[in-house]
C-alpha cells in the first residue's frame, strides 16, 4: 500500500509503484478533474501541486511521492471557486472546451504563489501548457487580473 496526502486527506492505495500519479488520482482516488492529455509531460493537462510546486503528474511514478508531501488537485484548490485564479477565470470566461483548464489553473496558481506580480515573459515561461482551443490570451489576462496587474 502507498500512502498519499491528497487535498488534505491521507489515502492508501494499492497500486504498482511505477503507476503514474495521474492515474492513481484518476482511477484509485477517483478525482477526474486532473486530465490525461499526452502521458509524456508535454501538454500539462495533468498538472497538480506537490507541496505547492506544479508537477506534471502523468510522468511521475507514484512511488516517488512521499506520504507527507501535500498533493493538491484542481478539486482541492479552493472549496468554492474562491481562489483568485478561479475568480479571474470566471470573470473573463476563459475556458472553451475546458479540458486543459484544470492544468492551466494549477500552473497559474503555482506561478502566482512564487511570483505574485509576474511579467509577461514570466507568465509565458510558466504557462507552457497546451490549449488546443487557443484560450492563451484570456489565460494571460486572467493571471494579470488575479495578480492585480493592470491589463
Amino acid at each position: 500500500m502507498i500512502r498519499l496526502t491528497i487535498n488534505g486527506t491521507v489515502r492508501e492505495v494499492d497500486v504498482e509503484p511505477d503507476t503514474p500519479l495521474l492515474w492513481v488520482i484518476r482511477e484509485q482516488i477517483g478525482l477526474t478533474g486532473t486530465k490525461y492529455g499526452c502521458g509524456v509531460a508535454a501538454c500539462g493537462a495533468c498538472t497538480v501541486h506537490i507541496d505547492g510546486q506544479p508537477v506534471r503528474s502523468c510522468s511521475l511514478p507514484v512511488s516517488e511521492v512521499k506520504a507527507n508531501q501535500k498533493i493538491t488537485t484542481i478539486e482541492g484548490l479552493s472549496p468554492d471557486l474562491t481562489h483568485p485564479i478561479q475568480k479571474a477565470w470566471l470573470e473573463l470566461d476563459v475556458p472553451q472546451c475546458g479540458y486543459c483548464q484544470s492544468g492551466q489553473i494549477m500552473a497559474a496558481a503555482a506561478l502566482l504563489k512564487e511570483k505574485p506580480k509576474p511579467t509577461d515573459a514570466e507568465i509565458a515561461e510558466a504557462m507552457s501548457n497546451i490549449c488546443r482551443c487557443g484560450t492563451y490570451n484570456r489565460i494571460k489576462a486572467a493571471i494579470k487580473r488575479a495578480a492585480g496587474i493592470p491589463a
Binding site: 482511477e27 477526474t32 478533474g33 478539486e75 471557486l81 470566471l90 475556458p95 475546458g98 483548464q101
Partner: peptide, 27 residues
C-alpha cells in the same frame, strides 16, 4: 453573456467522456 458552462470547468467538476464512471466498470 457569460457562458453557462464555465464554473464547472474551473474546479474539475465538468464530466468529460473520459471521466465517466459506472459501478463495476472495466477499462
Amino acid at each position: 453573456l457569460p457562458r453557462l458552462d464555465t464554473k464547472s470547468k474551473l474546479d474539475g467538476s465538468q464530466i468529460y467522456s473520459i471521466d465517466h464512471k459506472m459501478p463495476g466498470m472495466m477499462l
